[in-house]
Design a protein around this nucleic acid. Structure first.
Lengths: 338, 338
DNA sequence: CTGAAAGCGCTAACAC
DNA sequence: GTGTTAGCGCTTTCAG
């Protein structure tokens, strides 16, 4: 069933049907309702392929989300959609796996949907010039920047927290409570991304407090998932129990770690304080509720859309915003009782 | 940059470029490598719109996921993708919000991507004949069926748990532990879907045990989210504390309820046992770990793909599979101690 | 092995 | 207010 069939069924031309379908004003009410009738009756749906192909320009902003599982992204996504609409654009969402390439996905979307701009939610922090050359519209990296890449400041935009700084802050808050033997649960020491950055913050906090780094207190999970975090914590506990606090680089990892501690007979926070970074909804409802530095999802989303729209409309060049986290005090941290 | 530009740049025709791009064998190695070179250098990406438009048939199976937030779906999705590939098809994923219409989204996808079949993950349980008339390929409803609809058995396929039966089983397990005053945390009494079905199972379990239904022990959350579940639990606790166990229709709701109970000074399971249905990863890592009936994600996914492929290849008519849940014993249930 | 040409279904001028 | 028609970028016969 094509627009041609509908036109024939109605005894009008394809352009008239097209006009009705696209809410153009210059169609008589009579013809309009007749066309709508036939469209409904035949369950006719216009082909987006054909539409996208013929349209030379759109008001669409693309959003490529890398990592469906990340619950934090769901919250950002919601606000982004609202802000994009508010700015008079439409949003095209595209989710990809953690293993997929967000730049390639973005380039594809740009091509197909004739995007005006691109929002990248989660991605690599090591873009080279040639990587982003595939993109011909402004883009904003959300929740990450280009710490390990070779892009110039002007060549991209970003909105994120200062991962190194915030991790440092989290660990220092532990130190402030009298903890000196602080374990770290990270994804990987050198993932050229979030984990590496936050691990760097952990190391700096220790250093600035005059505490020597003890690598036996650091465990890598290899992922951001709960099962792997639980297992990593088991390994750590098997190796050494000599710590009074734990810094986890994400909420989900922290929650799994608390369970591992509990299973090993160590109470949280009495026997081990736990702090993390993220601030997802879930960790506010687990017991004990998690103390964490929350990434302000709404602010990140709003800022990202604002920057992108400004760029699209020619009001700005590459801009980089770092938003501050907010401490959400839970019940997982207490003063060192040793 | 179009295929024409690439052709011009290479000094060949568009058909040759097309052949290279689609891995057709009849192109000389020399020309092939030259074309690839130019494609890479120019970051050329073929237009999917144009491709989809011209292609009359594909090997694609569409997957429409309704409700990004649902962590259970993420697990099903993964297995589905593997099984679809294994069967020699490609998968096209499309995520929509809880408020969107999965049939419309599916019809659109079918049209655009020339689908051979459709997998619907999460959806309404009350389709009428006219609703599904928009679909021209076989489809399988996953995690739900048509309990409240008017479809004939032959008109669709489904893979799900028996929500009423499993809820009944969950509540009976509570009764078996000596509980008689059992509260229920549901989404809505009459959502014509999961919540209504599971609430029905709750009522039947009570009835068959000779326990009168006490509506004051039933609270509606209006959603499946944790904050709403927490608040609903607060309302319930404010109204009455006279229950020794709680049945929640989902894991996430149960975890939030446990937190509400804890905040109200009631220990789980000592003061109140809690059981739910779902079996998401998260609830195995909260404290106390949740006792729940797990929906076997892998089995649902595998079964759904098998049914769909059978239908596509003409080996079967509408088929309906109900998979059994598996009890995952946690620490949230104990014998009634009153 | 390679090229020319016919559409896929639709929108948007441009006529009437 | 309505119809005619030229492409959008691509794949795919069909020739050579």
């Amino acid at each position: 069933m094509t627009i041609k069939d509908i036109a024939a069924l109605c005894g009008v031309s394809v352009s008239t049907v097209s006009r009705v379908l696209n809410n153009h004003p210059d169609v008589s009410a009579q013809v309009r309702s007749r066309v709508m009738e036939v469209v409904q009756a035949n369950h006719y749906i216009p082909s987006n392929s054909a539409r996208d192909l013929v349209r030379t320009r759109s008001d669409a902003i693309g959003l490529v989300v890398r990592g469906t599982a990340n619950p934090f992204f769901a919250e950002v996504l919601k606000t982004m959609e609202a802000k994009v609409t508010e700015a008079g654009y439409t949003m095209v969402l595209h989710q990809i796996g953690t293993c997929d390439d967000e730049l390639q996905a973005g380039a594809m979307l740009e091509r197909d949907k004739k995007l005006r701009g691109l929002l990248l939610l989660g991605g690599r922090s090591d873009y080279a010039k040639n990587d982003v050359a595939a993109l011909n519209v402004p883009f904003v990296c959300c929740t990450y920047d280009n710490s390990y890449g070779t892009l110039g400041e002007e060549e991209y935009s970003s909105v994120s927290i200062d991962d190194e700084q915030e991790a440092c802050r989290a660990v220092k808050s532990l130190i402030g409570k009298g903890h000196r033997r602080i374990a770290a649960l990270i994804s990987a020491r050198n993932d050229r991304s979030i984990s590496e950055l936050r691990y760097g913050g952990y190391r700096r906090a220790l250093k600035e407090a005059g505490i020597a780094l003890d690598e036996t207190l650091v465990e890598e999970t290899g992922s951001f998932q709960m099962p792997e975090a639980y297992e990593a914590m088991e390994r750590l506990l098997k190796r050494t129990g000599e710590f009074t606090a734990l810094f986890a680089i994400s909420d989900a990892m922290a929650v799994a770690a608390i369970k591992a501690l509990d299973d090993a007979g160590r109470r949280v926070p009495e026997d081990c304080s736990v702090i993390a970074i993220d601030g997802i909804t879930m960790s506010a409802y687990t017991l004990p509720t998690l103390s964490t530095l929350i990434q302000p999802a709404d602010q990140i989303a709003a800022e990202a859309v604002r920057i992108l729209v400004d760029r699209i409309e020619g009001r700005a060049a590459g801009r980089h915003v770092q938003v501050a986290t907010i401490l959400r005090p839970g019940r997982s941290v207490c003063v060192n009782q040793e």
